[in-house]
């Protein structure tokens, strides 16, 4: 499983850029930056993925933030007790949070969920595996053209 994943990643840079552009979520018909959305992080390190993807909203200390509404804290969050919940939310998004399942593969989701569940005052040490993520993956959303 792990070996296969690394081979897949190694193949990515040789793909035409246009293929990469299909991977991450984009706003359809938008005043978007350009036709190239760029590649997502290739890291499988949960801490790196957290910094590259999650902390833009949940903050570096995972305490979330409140403005007109609240971006929830992941620090000390009892909803992380069952890994299935954060896996599902990362894959599919929730409310204003975008789905990340098209940008992160099973290993990356497992890694970042495992990282958050064992840091920021969370102590849920049962392992999170790529198989756990694969089992929860539904059909990927189709971004509008």
């Amino acid at each position: 499983m792990r070996r296969v994943f690394h081979q897949a990643l190694a193949a990515l840079p040789t793909l035409p850029v246009v293929a990469l552009a299909l991977l991450p979520m984009r706003a359809a018909h938008a005043d978007v930056a350009s036709s190239v959305a760029g590649a997502g992080t290739t890291s499988t390190d949960g801490q790196v993925i957290y910094a590259q993807v999650c902390q833009g909203c949940h903050q570096a200390n995972a305490k979330g933030a409140t403005g007109a509404a609240t971006i929830p804290a992941l620090a000390g969050n009892p909803k992380l007790a069952n890994a299935g919940y954060p896996i599902y939310v990362v894959l599919n998004g929730k409310g204003g949070m975008p789905w990340l399942g098209t940008m992160l593969n099973d290993t990356q989701v497992a890694s970042v969920v495992g990282y958050v569940r064992t840091h920021f005052g969370n102590h849920y040490t049962d392992p999170v595996t790529p198989q756990d993520v694969a089992a929860l993956r539904g059909p990927a959303p189709t971004p509008e053209k």
Binding site: R26, A33, A37, G38, G40, A51, Q52, C54, G56
Partner: peptide, 13 residues
Amino acid sequence: GYMFGPAAYAFSG
């Protein structure tokens, strides 16, 4: 710079 997608997540952080 003007980013959407993964680069926007990274720069936001």
